[in-house]
């Protein structure tokens, strides 16, 4: 599971890239993309800094097994 990116909304500001401690994000041609081989730890800081709403870290809500 990885954060979802809406490339249409991304303004290429790069704040999400620099906030990510896992280095799971990078800019390619001015648009943010996930680095597939790096596991995201779901801290949601990328979503918090994104002003354009292009990154989403959705949660699945489940009962304890």
């Amino acid at each position: 599971m990885m954060p979802q990116i809406d490339k249409e909304k991304c303004n290429g500001c790069g704040l999400c890239v620099s906030v990510c401690l896992q280095h799971s994000l990078m800019l390619v041609d001015g648009v943010v993309v996930m680095v597939e081989e790096v596991e995201c730890d779901w801290c949601t800081q990328c979503e918090a800094v994104c002003d354009s709403g292009s990154i989403s870290c959705p949660f699945e809500i489940v009962r304890e097994q």
Partner: peptide, 10 residues
Amino acid sequence: KMDRHRIIIK
């Protein structure tokens, strides 16, 4: 419990 992309209702 927050478990990566899951919120587990305890």
